[in-house]
Every structure is written in structure tokens, then in C-alpha cells.
Simulated assay, not measured.
Amino acid sequence: MISEKWAVRALRVFLVVLFGVLVVFQTLSLPGGIAYHTQQNPHDAPLRWPLTAIAVFLVLCVQVVLVATWQLLTLVKKDRIFTTASLKWVDAIVWAIGAAWLVFVGMLLFVGFNADDPGMPMLLFLVTVGITVLGLLMVVMRALLRQATTLRSDMEAVI
């Protein structure tokens, strides 16, 4: 079985790689791809900047989750994960997921009322449900972390 030490190291490596790839997407790929699409489809030209802003914002939400995860890993390494310091990073994850959820709900409503084909609304619905599950899972995990933090501080007070 992989030890916690190796898992934390490997996760940190992949967090850095993922963050780097997201920066490339955020600054080059997504704006360039959206610009190309609007050049090829002039009827979509008014959507270029709103779509670019939405795409960059959603990538920013993922980056917030990655930074918060890095900070939580630091607390794990220092054996301080069950302290109040960890709660603010979990809250950052919950807020980032909540912001992304709001954007996807808005896109689902906009596309759902304007689409001719059910494919894109169904895809947006699937992603929205997935983000909902992830957000609710994080709320439950935050409650468990809060309980564990309280129990640990109570145990330290007794000892």
C-alpha cells in the first residue's frame, strides 16, 4: 500500500502539473479557441467575450481548489490537519465549487431555453449535477473535519 508520505508527494507533483496546464488553457487555449470559433461562425461573434470570461472564471475556480488542496496537504504534512487552520481552506474549496455551480446553472438555463438540440443542455445538466454532488460532498467533509477538529482539541485538553 502507498504510504501517506508518498501519496502527498505524488499528489503535489500532479497538482503542479495540473495548475500549469490550466494556466496554459486559461491564457492561450480557451481564449484562442473561442476566438477561432467566433471567426468561423460569425453568428456566434457576440458570445466571444462572455464565453471567454466564463471559461477563464471556471478555470480560476479549479485553480482555487488546487491551491487550497496544496495548503491542506501542507497541514497534513505538519500533522495540523485537525486544526481550525484547515477549515478556511476547505471553505475556499466549497466557495469555489459554489461559484462554478452558479455559472453552470446560469449556462444551463440560458442554453436550455435557447437550444434547438437537447445535446448541449443535457451535457450542461450532467456537469451541473456532478458539481452539485461534489459541492455537497465537500460540505459533508467540512462537517466531518469540524467534528474531528473539535474531538482532537478536546483530547488535547484532557491530556
Rank of each mutant, 00 (worst) to 15 (best):
I54S: 08
L123C: 03
T149Y: 06
V56Q: 15
M122C: 02
L11M: 14
L58T: 08
V76F: 05
M155W: 08
I81D: 02
T83W: 03
M107H: 00
A99H: 00
T74D: 13
Q71D: 08
F110L: 11
K77N: 08
V140N: 06
I34L: 14
I159E: 08
G98Q: 02
D117F: 00
L47Y: 15
S86I: 01
D91Y: 04
T149A: 06
L109W: 07
V111A: 03
F113M: 11
W95R: 10
P31H: 04
K77F: 06
F110V: 05
L144M: 11
M138F: 12
P118H: 02
R12A: 10
L144W: 09
L11Y: 08
A10Y: 12
L75F: 05
W70K: 06
E156A: 09
A55G: 15
G112S: 05
A35G: 11
L108I: 00
V158P: 00
R12W: 07
L18P: 00
S3L: 09
L51V: 08
A53P: 00
F104D: 01
V76C: 06
A45R: 15
P31L: 04
G33D: 04
G106K: 01
Y36W: 15
M155P: 00
R9Q: 12
L22Q: 03
L136I: 06
V62I: 12
L47W: 14
M107Q: 11
A53Y: 01
L18Y: 08
V94F: 07
L30E: 13
S29Y: 15
D91F: 03
I131C: 04
T128R: 02
V105W: 02
D116F: 08
L30C: 12
L73D: 09
F19D: 14
F25P: 02
R152W: 06
L151Y: 03
Q71S: 09
E156Q: 13
M120A: 10
T52I: 11
F19M: 04
M107A: 13
I159P: 00
K78N: 13
M122G: 05
F19S: 13
V17I: 14
V158I: 11
V24T: 13
M1V: 06
L60A: 13
P31D: 05
M122N: 11
L15T: 08
W89H: 15
V56F: 02
L66N: 11
W49N: 09
G130S: 12
L51R: 10
Q40L: 15
T84M: 07
P121G: 01
T132Y: 04
D116H: 10
G119F: 07
D154L: 12
A99G: 08
P46S: 05
R152S: 10
G33P: 04
A96C: 04
Q40C: 10
I81P: 03
